[in-house]
Amino acid sequence: MNKFLGYIFSPVFYFLFFLTLVIFQPVQWICYRFFGYKAHKVSVDILNFFLTYCDLALGSSVTFVNDQELPVNRPIIFIANHQSMYDIPALIWFLRKYHAKFISKIELTKGIPSISFNLKYGGGANIDRKDSKQAISEIIKLGRRMKENNWSTVIFPEGTRSKDGKLKTFQIGGIATLLKAVPNALIVPVAIENSWKIVQYGNYPLSFGERLRWTVLCPVEPDAKKPEDIVLEAENAIRVQLNQVIVP
């Protein structure tokens, strides 16, 4: 039934989603060019509020749980599993007070209304996956901006989206590089559930009536821990939340 209803409601969702992107392209440009970072960030936050709740057009529920008392005066590295592009708007909206930035493919900085503009001017890191030196340099620059401004970064250490919701082994590279630049960053795991189901049939039809959930888990203090131990601790916390614990 969710596939059948997806044929009906997917066009409505896509219309609302892309209309939002088109409307906010000039809004972002005006905010950034004439009023600076703060105004631009507000426009991006509002954009992602609307993008998040476009999911309602698919009959999906949106639940974001954050029972953690996280600091706003300290950089944070949010470590999340990645299931679809629809993971991202809710992270930007619900984590807005932490100024969450993203590490993105440089190709995404062109051709996508609103999204490309934000990636280019929003303060994140845009990396060329074919150029490791450029990628490391951009991540280090992001770490410095985090340190200077008490910003946060959301990173997806699986390296690619999970098409079936099963958690992939986390890679430590990007997180280790960030921690070198901002060693006092608090590590916060975020578990994402059921986002993959939206695109389980592909881009059309999108699945109708899925229960989307984001859960912010207990922070991990980096202290003197090795990056691989930090990443493993975050991965295991997410596995527990997703009921995907690996049995030895």
Rank of each mutant, 00 (worst) to 15 (best):
D45P: 00
F18G: 01
I127M: 04
P157V: 11
I136V: 13
I230V: 11
I139W: 09
T177I: 12
V247M: 13
P11G: 12
Y201I: 02
K110M: 15
K133L: 12
W151F: 15
V188D: 12
F117G: 12
V12D: 12
L51N: 04
G59T: 05
F50I: 01
Y14C: 11
K38V: 07
F35I: 01
Y37P: 01
R129N: 05
N118C: 14
E228Y: 06
Y7W: 07
S195F: 15
L167V: 07
E158Q: 05
F24P: 06
N203M: 08
P75Q: 02
N194E: 11
N66F: 06
E69S: 07
D128G: 04
W196Q: 03
G159R: 00
F117R: 13
N184C: 11
D229L: 15
Y204D: 00
L242Q: 08
F35W: 14
G209K: 00
F49W: 15
P157A: 06
T20E: 05
K163I: 14
Q25I: 00
R211Y: 07
P219L: 02
A135F: 01
Y37M: 07
H82T: 03
C54Q: 04
H40E: 08
Q200E: 15
W151L: 13
K166N: 14
V190P: 00
L217N: 05
F24N: 04
P183I: 01
I246G: 09
Y86T: 04
N73H: 08
N73F: 07
F78V: 01
A181N: 06
V72P: 10
S152H: 05
I77M: 04
L58R: 03
N66Y: 08
I103P: 00
Y37V: 04
K3G: 05
K105P: 01
I23P: 00
L178A: 03
K105S: 03
L206E: 05
E210Q: 13
N2F: 12
A181G: 09
L119I: 08
L56D: 11
K101G: 10
G174A: 09
V245G: 07
I115M: 12
A100F: 08
I127D: 02
P205Q: 01
Q244G: 02
Y37G: 03
G165C: 04
P222Q: 14
C31Y: 01
W29G: 15
K97V: 14
D164N: 11
N126L: 06
K197Y: 03
K120L: 13
D223M: 14
I175F: 12
W93A: 04
P89R: 04
S207F: 14
P205K: 01
T109S: 09
S84V: 00
I198P: 09
V216Y: 04
N48F: 14
L232H: 12
E233G: 05
A80G: 06
Q83W: 11
F17D: 12
K133W: 07
I76Y: 13
L5Y: 11
A191M: 08
